[in-house]
Simulated assay, not measured.
Amino acid sequence: MLKTAIAVGTACALLGSAAVVNKRIQSREVATLRDHPPEGQILDVNGTPVHVYVEGTGPDVILIHGAGANWKDFTFSLIPILKQNFRLIAIDRPAHGYTGRIKDRAGDIESLAEQADLIHAAAQMVAAKRPLVVGQSYGGAVALSYGLRYGAETSGLMIISGVSHPWPGKLDRWYRIMGSAVGRHLLTPVLSAFATEQRGIDTVNAVFAPDPAPQGYLEHIGMGLAVRPSQVRVNISMVNALLPQIKEQSKRYDELQMPVEILHGTADQTVLHEIHALPLSKQIKNAELSILDGIGHMPHHTATDEVVTALYRLAKHAGLQ
């Protein structure tokens, strides 16, 4: 009887805790959707809702964000500067921002190729013509996949702090823990329900290090969007599934014939330039490599002038300006 009573009591406590967590998550999601609504179009791409934000006039530029981010990463620094001379198309990747999961995907997680196909289809729906494709961090891997799959329709690529080649060792412990059953089913809901603003600030500072994060960045991109359980789970799974895809994709970069700009900071401790940018620049015939001394993982915010200059150079090499 005692064991039964303990078991019943424990079950009730867990159910009660789960109810509190779920209520907190729902409350935060309501506030997030109110404070950070979609600012672009939500397109139906073969049954998948895809959020596409378009601004500016000029040659088309597709912007692909990194892990755990969303379209607003580009509306903070780059789009306000470039919109007078480029038509900028920022697209949320699957399960990020306001884009849903790819319908009828081949596996549990959307592959780089599937993401590239989705982005290409969405860009066509907003009449993009021979775009320049910009990818940052994980988005760099997607941009490279885009170039390999749609090279004849792509004017050029820009890879900013991009993942391009296999790396030694294991991923950060965070991804391994959060990718476990305990992480997915227990830690993720708790994180989503109770992550504090200070935790968000610490995370952003770690991503930008050693550069300071721009004032107002966290508020702008919407911390609540990033910590939703649906986005956290998919983002973690995508990163954990990246290495085998990169091993295969990296064998084909010599097929890229379009001009490619590669920008990478020497102080980037998230994606190391020696492992990614340097070998990538040697594999691609028409690559221009810009090594940014002392810059971390987010040069589109912390070395914006260099990134903007590189985009204009890419457009010129592609014959668009």
Rank of each mutant, 00 (worst) to 15 (best):
L2P: 02
A7T: 07
G9S: 11
T10Q: 07
A11R: 01
A13M: 08
G16R: 04
G16F: 05
V20E: 00
I25Y: 12
V30N: 07
T48S: 10
Y53F: 13
L63Q: 01
H65C: 00
G66R: 04
A67V: 00
G68C: 01
T75F: 08
I79V: 11
Q84L: 07
N85A: 08
F86L: 11
L88N: 09
R93C: 11
D104Q: 15
R105H: 13
D108C: 05
I109A: 12
L112R: 12
Q115H: 10
D117E: 13
I119C: 06
H120A: 11
A121F: 14
A122S: 14
A123K: 10
M125A: 11
V126P: 03
K129P: 10
P131R: 05
Y138I: 09
G139Q: 08
G139D: 05
V142Q: 10
A143H: 02
R149A: 13
Y150N: 04
E153T: 12
T154N: 08
I159R: 07
H165I: 07
L171Q: 12
D172G: 05
D172P: 02
G179S: 14
S180G: 04
S180N: 02
A181G: 11
L191A: 10
T196E: 00
G200L: 05
G200C: 09
Q215T: 14
L218Q: 07
H220F: 10
H220L: 02
A226L: 14
V227R: 01
R228W: 00
S230H: 08
R233H: 08
I246S: 08
E248D: 11
G265N: 10
A267P: 01
A267D: 07
Q269D: 15
E274M: 06
I275S: 03
A277L: 12
L278V: 04
Q283G: 05
N286V: 09
E288S: 07
L292V: 05
D293I: 05
I295N: 08
H297Q: 09
H300L: 13
T302R: 12
H317I: 02
